[in-house]
Simulated scan of single mutants.
Amino acid sequence: MNVAIYPGSFDPVTNGHLDIIERSSRLFDRLIVAVLRNPSKKPLFTVEERIEMIKKSVSHIKNVEVDYFSGLLVDFARLKKACIIVKGLRAVSDFEYELQMALMNKKLDEEIETVFIMTNAKYSYLSSSIVKEVASLGGCVKELVPPLVAEKLREKFNK
């Protein structure tokens, strides 16, 4: 069984993330969307809120589960018996950082492979940071995120 992990902060999950999740779910027997719990960052949404939004957004995909982790991704991968890490790439600028991370993960555990999936061109500009900024200024994000996430953003920013 090929088990893959798609890690990220997902603060919040965007349609670009969902595109990578849907496409990855067709490539692997099981896909774990792993929400990073990073105490040094100040996310807009709690880990629990992010997990809930992702679960509701991917409930139609049967081989996807959602979990969270902190610490080293390779340790979480071993715990989940995953041998593949999925990373979405929007642009060349993403590749340099993600390549560095993939090589470090390989150094930490040579059994784990990283698979890069190019984003759909219509999401190449999209990031959680941009979504939060637009939402915080009262802009419409309904075509950028699932409806549930758009509603949660409106609640957070009272817009």
Rank of each mutant, 00 (worst) to 15 (best):
M1D: 14
N2T: 13
V3T: 12
Y6W: 05
Y6F: 10
Y6T: 02
P7Y: 02
P7F: 03
P7S: 02
G8T: 07
S9H: 06
S9G: 04
S9E: 06
D11M: 01
P12D: 02
V13T: 02
V13H: 00
T14G: 01
G16T: 03
G16D: 02
H17W: 05
L18Q: 05
I20D: 00
I21T: 07
R23M: 00
S25D: 07
S25G: 03
S25Q: 05
R26S: 13
L27G: 01
F28K: 01
R30N: 04
L31S: 07
I32D: 00
V33R: 01
A34Y: 03
S40R: 07
K41W: 01
K42P: 06
K42G: 07
K42Y: 06
L44C: 09
L44S: 06
T46N: 07
T46A: 07
R50F: 00
R50A: 05
K55M: 10
K55W: 02
V58L: 08
V58Q: 05
V58I: 14
S59F: 14
H60N: 12
V64Y: 00
E65H: 00
V66N: 04
D67L: 10
D67K: 10
Y68F: 15
S70G: 13
S70T: 13
S70Y: 11
L72M: 15
L73H: 04
V74N: 00
F76N: 04
L79C: 13
K80C: 08
K81E: 14
A82S: 14
I85N: 03
V86C: 05
R90E: 00
S93W: 08
S93C: 07
D94E: 10
F95I: 09
E96W: 08
Y97E: 10
E98H: 03
L99T: 11
Q100K: 15
M101K: 08
A102L: 07
A102S: 10
M104V: 14
N105I: 13
K106H: 15
K106E: 12
K107D: 13
D109K: 05
E110Y: 14
E111G: 15
I112S: 05
E113S: 15
E113F: 14
T114R: 12
T114I: 14
V115A: 12
V115H: 13
V115M: 15
F116D: 05
F116Q: 05
I117V: 15
I117L: 15
M118R: 05
M118G: 04
M118Q: 09
T119C: 11
N120Y: 04
A121C: 06
Y125E: 09
Y125D: 12
S127P: 06
S128N: 09
S129I: 12
S129Q: 11
I130G: 04
K132Y: 05
K132Q: 06
V134I: 15
S136W: 04
L137P: 03
G139P: 04
G139Q: 02
C140M: 11
V141H: 01
L144W: 09
V145Q: 06
P146V: 02
L148Q: 11
V149P: 05
V149K: 01
V149I: 11
A150T: 07
K152I: 13
K152S: 08
K152Y: 04
L153G: 02
R154M: 12
K156D: 06
F157H: 12
N158Q: 13
N158F: 10
K159E: 11
